[in-house]
Design a protein around this nucleic acid. Structure first.
Lengths: 66, 66
DNA sequence: TACATATGCAATTTATATATTACATTCATT
DNA sequence: AATGAATGTAATATATAAATTGCATATGTA
């Protein structure tokens, strides 16, 4: 479950902590999602996408394998 | 959490049961997701999208409110 | 009418996403 | 080298996605 969260967050000059707070989850949750060994819920994916000004597809669609 | 699963499934002439089987979940899970009062995981959303030949955005992105 | 198919829905159980707490590591800066 | 900020990671607890079972309802059709 690879995704583009980490690279996009860094481009936005945000820390995991900042993204987590904006999205309303803990830093650890963001870290695990970025690591790709996690299966977040749809609402969380949508929140992350909006926080990073991206769409679901841009962050989570056919990033690799799957 | 509205989405376009139901309308797309019907266009494809599939039953909830058929979609559920193709995706590997139960009919009830599909029913609840279509009803929109459910928060499926990303992997399930991706499976549903592929089963219906759509992308995440087409099924789950800014369908309404949010 | 009677029967089959598709769907809605509710209760309970199970699996897992997420929170919480805590500590280790990396890296930049002083 | 020492300090602090950012991140990795692990154990346990809690919330909730999803499974399971079962029954009700609607609708088409023989």
């Amino acid at each position: 479950m690879k995704n583009n969260v980490k690279i996009t967050r860094i481009k936005r000059s945000m820390t995991q902590e900042q993204l987590a707070r904006k999205v309303g989850v803990t830093r650890q949750t963001i870290g695990l999602i970025e690591k790709g060994e996690y299966n977040p819920t749809l609402l969380l994916c949508i929140s992350i996408a909006k926080a990073l000004d991206k769409t679901l597809d841009e962050l989570f669609w056919e990033v690799e394998d799957e």
